[in-house]
């Protein structure tokens, strides 16, 4: 620890005592070695991290995914057996189903809520800044164990939501213990955190030039027409950005499902997120080879979905600078 802190700081502090005399005047071309050297000094922590904590572990985990490894005895190479096992593992497929379901429902609904509220706030009335901050607050709190515990209690059998719905004649019982509804407790928790994409949407809405709205008004376009023909196309790069971000995050959701299902993904695996099952394989069953294989499946899945969104973006994302 102290080693990591002290060393690079020291060099950064002592270095000015002997300034690299060469790197004066002709900055762009000469003095290259001096700058090169300095650059690598600044980059040292990042380089160590990238090599030892990212590149190395990625290669290792790819290798481990082809082994049988329990952390205590040496890994044994078994080819693609882990991947074959996945195909026949029903819990793996429930985890895939639950996660895809969650991504497909939670990410779009969250973005829809974020866009709707951003449009509402964009009216530039007094108090806009206050509402913007206040609506953003759940995004900061939502990742905590505390809020997951609140959700768990709110949606429990005889809990507040159950009681509330009973009074209006809907008798659902506790959502947490109902395998048909339990995932939606997590979806609602995700939507509750719409504040972060909302703030990004608001920033995007402010970038749309007023001229376009004026021109559209001169042309006699109504509100709805202006929304579809001006706001949405001009905002599409921001929608795209938010969509990629939310989808990648949704694939990796963990804390809430762990807390709400007590770490088991129940009832009947209805909240068994991919990451939760991966955690279970790796750190309860110590099936490290299988868990590594799952991690690579997750990486490839996220890669494919992101690539699909990028591919589709050509059809619906509009960059105002570009000629069609």
């Amino acid at each position: 620890m102290t080693v990591a802190v002290d060393r690079p700081t020291d060099s950064a502090l002592t270095a000015p005592a002997q300034p690299p005399a060469k790197a004066s005047r002709q900055r762009p071309r000469t003095g290259r070695t001096g700058k090169n050297g300095a650059a690598y000094v600044f980059l040292t922590p990042w380089l160590i991290g990238a090599a030892l904590l990212t590149v190395g572990p990625m290669i290792a985990s790819l290798y481990l995914s082809f082994t049988d490894y329990d952390l205590f005895s040496a890994p044994e190479f078994i080819g693609i057996a882990n991947y074959q096992r996945m195909v026949e593992d029903p819990r793996f497929w429930s985890a895939v189903g639950v996660t895809l379901n969650y991504v497909l429902v939670a990410a779009p609904l969250k973005l829809l809520a974020a866009l709707a509220v951003a449009l509402l706030l964009n009216k530039a009335r007094r108090g806009q800044g206050f509402y913007r901050s206040a609506f953003y607050a759940p995004s900061l709190l939502g990742a905590s164990v505390a809020v997951a515990l609140v959700w768990r209690t709110l949606f429990a059998n005889d809990g507040v939501v159950d009681t509330g719905l009973s009074t209006v004649g809907i008798d659902g019982g506790g959502w947490i213990s109902n395998p048909k509804l339990s995932l939606y407790v997590l979806v609602i928790l995700a939507i509750w955190q719409f504040g972060a994409p909302m703030v990004i949407f608001l920033a995007g809405l402010k970038q749309i030039p007023q001229d376009l709205y004026d021109a559209s008004a001169v042309d006699g376009a109504g509100k709805l027409r202006t929304f579809w023909s001006v706001t949405i196309p001009m905002l599409s790069p921001v929608i795209f950005f938010n969509l990629v971000l939310e989808v990648i995050n949704a694939f990796q959701a963990f804390t809430a499902s762990y807390i709400i299902s007590g770490g088991r993904g129940g009832p009947i695996d209805s909240t068994l997120f991919f990451t939760l099952y991966l955690y279970d394989r790796a750190f309860t069953a110590f099936d490290m080879g299988y868990a590594s294989a799952m991690a690579w499946v997750l990486l490839v899945a996220i890669g494919i979905v992101t690539a699909l969104i990028f591919r589709s973006s050509r059809a619906w994302v509009f960059y105002s600078g570009e000629e069609k």
Partner: peptide, 29 residues
């Protein structure tokens, strides 16, 4: 700063932002 590996390193750094931590989790452990 200008240095030879700037572009590839920077691109790599951007990729790691999106990298799910699960893929390095077990070897790191």
């Amino acid at each position: 700063l200008r240095f030879r590996m700037r572009r590839p390193f920077f691109a790599f750094m951007l990729v790691t932002i999106m990298l799910p931590m699960h893929v390095v989790l077990i070897p790191q452990f």
